[in-house]
């Protein structure tokens, strides 16, 4: 066990955990931030996607010992007023079916638009290829990213 201070959604959080504890479980079990989901545990499905310094990462495979002063953002912190263009577009396109993977999908999409506000179809497909949606909502995800992109640019 070791003590860590990590920055999540703009706030410093102190936790005492084993150094190899993935951020996913720090968020879910220690900080009670359950918006970030567990899907595979091996960075293959993207359900646990969060931002580290604005980049999409898989929180199931990032141990707390590697976080240092990274600024982490989770689905709970994606927007203060619950109005991130990605969230609004997801609602407008009624994207979710079961909804379980969607936090990870949205975090990947938001990171894409952070670095590239007007992605091409190919760029969207490539950036979103690490996030599995078992219900098959990919077409609506794609359309929602285009809508959010238009709003941003």
């Amino acid at each position: 066990m070791a003590a860590y201070t990590i920055n999540v959604n703009g706030e410093d959080q102190k936790v005492e955990v084993d150094p190899d504890t993935p951020i996913l479980w720090v968020l879910r079990d220690h900080l009670q931030m359950i918006g970030t989901k567990f899907g595979c545990g091996i960075a293959q499905c993207g359900a646990c996607t969060i931002h580290a310094n604005g980049n999409a990462i898989r929180s199931c495979s990032l141990p707390i010992s590697a976080v240092g002063d990274m600024k982490l953002t989770t689905i709970e912190g994606l927007s203060k007023e619950k109005d991130h263009p990605i969230q609004e577009a997801w609602l407008a396109h009624d994207v979710p079916q079961c909804g379980y993977c969607q936090a990870g999908q949205m975090m990947s999409a938001a990171a894409l638009l952070n670095r590239n506000p007007s992605p091409t179809d190919e760029e969207i497909s490539s950036a979103m290829n690490g996030n599995i949606c078992r219900c098959g909502t990919y077409i609506r995800i794609h359309a929602a990213i285009k809508t959010a992109s238009q709003k941003l640019s």
């Binding site: 359950i34 989901k37 567990f38 989770t74 689905i75 709970e76 997801w90 609602l91 909804g99 969607q102």
Partner: peptide, 19 residues
């Protein structure tokens, strides 16, 4: 066309699922 009643909770990461 009616939107998913849990849509807002889903997109804002609120607790909904068994896990």
């Amino acid at each position: 066309r009616v939107k998913n009643v849990d849509g807002s909770k889903i997109v804002h990461g609120e607790p909904l699922f068994g896990l």
